[in-house]
Design a protein around this nucleic acid. Structure first.
Length: 516
RNA sequence: GGCCCCAUCGUCUAACCAGGUUAGGACACAGGGUUUUCAUCCCUGCAAUGCGGGUUCAAAUCCCGCUGGGGUCACCA
């Protein structure tokens, strides 16, 4: 039994696509499930980009989610280098082999000629395939053209009138008629390889056993199969998984459409939360995060476990009931047989629900660790963070309880860090500026002043007593106290809020609220 | 338009391959309970096999057609 080797081959675009991350996850899981290797290869054949800015976010996303690669950038491996831009000698050698064996030919036709051919075929409503004029050229003529510096490209000579059969691990049998396949360019005039060619050469050389990729690559497959066969390679197994759709649609989730996603009801909440949070973190314009990027989820405080769980459930299920899946469980159970064939929408609501589950599971100290950087970035606390400050943050996290869904939610605790609070005016009018309320608030404020100790149970008892004596509903004071001390209508238990603020600050804020 | 893929609640899916279930679960939504608000938690409800033919005692499940949706058609990856 040979080793399972899977790969994910991103091109350095400067961000990691959430849908691409799902494909990468399936590759990673399949490799790990079978004790194999997961390889990261960088498809940078035609781009001259800054490694740091273009590749950085991609590696960052993998590391954040804990999907470490066995071979690839920064970790190396026995088949290095893992950048296609550094592997051109392999493509050139393979090209030469194909030319020698007659599987590829030099095409001297111009772009204009090809375009015209294509147009004509279109007009006559017949499928376009190459006319292969260069094949008619005599050797002498070819030499002449070359000496004259006439540019040419190398094309694969597609065998006409034959059938390509793919036994895909997910789609089962898919067939193509080669008579309908134009001869693909595999090398440019300057000797650089094209995607389909470089991919085939690398997949073979890296000994990739399973090519797991999104179904939009299905049309590339017959060409790649032909190339593998012409090169005499052992064919990898192919598994075309469904692509990820934009929420509520059947269209492929695309980075180019982010602006229109802003209006998508399912995506709206994500955008809005980002608009609230990122400026506070000083991440506004320059970073330009959006929910198509993995980094968005990291920066807004999602947990890897939440994102991973959601990604795994797009197009895959363990059984008829299990929804909560840890990476560990996934590694133990992942199988391509249970990948569905239909494209699946990315559901932000479901992600949020998984996130809620995993955040609840997170040990308190890790929650605090996750929150602290947000408070630092928002300049609500400063570095180095003292033990005392950390304890204070911890007590807030405890008070927040399950209300803390994302780490960025800790920013809602702003009133505990600064006196510069924003009042929810509508609720302030309703709960504080209301007949009889200020009088009760003032009266109870005086009781708080002498209350010792200033603790949750003591406050609760005091409020109960006050309400029994006056016949006032506890809700009246509870709401009035929260609004006047935090400005917010929702949040931790009101006694927790007061305890967190301390007696002095609580009294001062009540006084200030009574004067508003 | 050519080629290719796909089709179960609003969404993600189970049951399909080896035909027989009141078509199950989760999210969302609605209602109720717990709670000082919110969140959590618990209960209840809503809600699907695209259409038409076959095959069969029996079809979500097997076959064909239709319709619909989508992907892809570069000297991009």
């Amino acid at each position: 039994m040979s080793t399972v080797r899977t790969r994910f081959a991103p091109s350095p675009t400067g961000y990691m696509h959430i849908g691409g991350m799902r494909t990468a996850l399936f590759n990673w899981l399949y490799a790990k499930r079978h004790g194999g290797q997961f390889i990261l290869r960088i498809d940078d054949t035609d781009q001259e980009r800054n490694q740091e800015t273009a590749l950085g976010p991609i590696l960052r996303a993998f590391r954040w989610l804990g999907l470490l690669w066995d071979e690839g950038p920064e970790v190396g491996g026995s088949h290095k280098p893992y950048f296609q831009s550094q592997r051109s000698h392999l493509y050139r050698a393979a090209a030469e082999k194909l030319e020698q064996s007659g599987h590829a030919y030099r095409d001297f036709s111009t772009k204009e000629e090809n375009d015209a051919d294509r147009k004509l075929a279109d007009k006559e409503k017949r499928p376009y395939i190459n006319i292969r004029r260069s094949l008619e050229l005599s050797d002498a003529k070819k030499r002449e053209l070359e000496t004259a510096g006439h540019p040419w490209v190398l094309r694969l000579l597609v065998p006409r009138e034959s059938k390509i059969v793919l036994d895909d691990l997910i789609r089962e049998r898919v067939e193509w008629d080669t008579s309908l396949l134009p001869d693909p360019v595999i090398m440019r005039a300057n000797g650089s390889a094209l995607y389909n060619f470089a991919t085939v050469v690398d997949d073979a050389e890296l000994e990739i056993s399973h090519v797991i990729r999104a179904e939009e690559h299905l049309p590339n497959t017959p060409i790649q199969i032909l190339l593998h066969e012409a090169l005499g390679n052992t064919l990898p197994r192919f598994a075309h998984i469904p692509y990820v759709c934009a929420p509520g649609t059947k269209e492929k989730l695309s980075k180019r459409k982010v602006e229109q996603y802003r209006k998508n009801p399912a995506f709206k909440r994500l955008f809005e939360r980002g608009d609230e949070v990122f400026p506070q973190l000083g991440l506004s314009a320059a970073v330009a995060l959006d929910p198509v990027m993995v980094e968005y989820y990291e920066r807004i405080g999602y947990l890897p476990a939440g994102v991973l769980n959601a990604l795994a459930r797009i197009g895959w299920s363990l059984d008829d009931r299990t929804e909560i899946l840890s990476l560990q469980t996934l590694v133990e159970n992942f199988s391509l047989e249970r990948v569905v064939k239909a494209p699946a929408g990315f559901d932000p609501d479901k992600l949020f629900s998984f996130q809620g589950h995993w955040m609840k599971e997170l040990p308190l100290d890790e929650k605090v660790d996750g929150c602290v950087p947000y408070l630092v970035d928002a300049k609500l606390i400063s570095e180095p963070v003292s033990a005392e400050t950390r304890e204070f943050v911890k007590s807030i996290v405890v008070a927040l309880g399950d209300r803390l869904k994302l780490f960025a939610d800790i920013l809602d605790a702003r009133p505990f860090f600064t006196d510069d609070i924003t009042f929810d005016e509508k609720n302030f009018d309703k709960r504080v500026r209301k007949d009889g309320v200020p009088a009760h608030l003032a009266a109870f404020r005086n009781r708080l002043e002498t209350l010792e100790p200033f603790t949750v149970p003591a406050m609760e008892a005091a409020l109960q007593a006050y309400c029994e004596e006056t016949g006032e509903q506890t809700g009246t004071l509870v709401h009035a106290l929260r609004l006047s001390t935090t400005g917010q209508a929702v949040g931790p238990g009101v006694y927790d809020c007061l305890a967190l603020l301390g007696k002095e600050k609580s009294l001062a804020r009540i006084d200030a609220a009574l004067k508003r």
